[in-house]
């Protein structure tokens, strides 16, 4: 239940990323900028849902505060830094830089998602089975 919601959110972010990247590779600065703003907002929401709702709950229940979630938080920071650089490149109309950074961010996100989808989310699902419904509602409302 949690897993499906979060995976769907990953795919939504991917779709926004692809729209921005496709526009940038066509040289369409305006569309790229709008789509990238949508991506930034969706990512910001997704990352903070995990950091403020899912991870604290999981850490409290499993007692694993320094473990997998710490690595995930660190990767979130890496993503935020990359998105900031991409925004600067886009605002400076450096579309080649934007695309090069985008390729890097894309792989960073995908290998991160793979770890979450294949390992961390199923672990959360196990640890938080009895409060999943309430958690899901908090995430939806976030």
């Amino acid at each position: 239940m949690l897993t499906n919601f979060l995976i769907a959110d990953h795919r939504d972010c991917d779709a926004l990323f692809a729209t921005a990247e496709n526009a940038a590779s066509d040289g369409d600065h305006a569309t790229a900028s709008t789509a990238f703003a949508g991506f930034e907002a969706a990512m910001a929401r997704h990352l903070s849902i995990e950091e403020n709702v899912l991870f604290p709950e999981f850490e409290a229940r499993s007692g694993m505060a320094g473990g997998p979630t710490a690595v995930m938080r660190m990767e979130h920071e890496q993503m935020r830094a990359m998105m900031l650089q991409m925004r600067r490149a886009l605002d400076g109309r450096e579309l080649d830089d934007f695309l090069g950074l985008g390729e890097t961010l894309h792989i960073l996100i995908q290998q991160h998602n793979m770890k979450e989808e294949q390992m961390l989310y199923p672990m959360c699902e196990n640890a938080l089975a009895d409060s999943a419904q309430a958690l899901l509602e908090r995430m939806r409302a976030y």
């Binding site: 890496q78 090069g100 890097t104 792989i107």
Partner: peptide
Amino acid sequence: VPFLVWLHLQQRLATRIEVRHSIVLPNMKS
């Protein structure tokens, strides 16, 4: 290969807290 190079540079940079915001790493395409 380009991703791993970038990833390991990123990790190295993260250990230098005082300068990590002053250095811009090359991206995969460079």
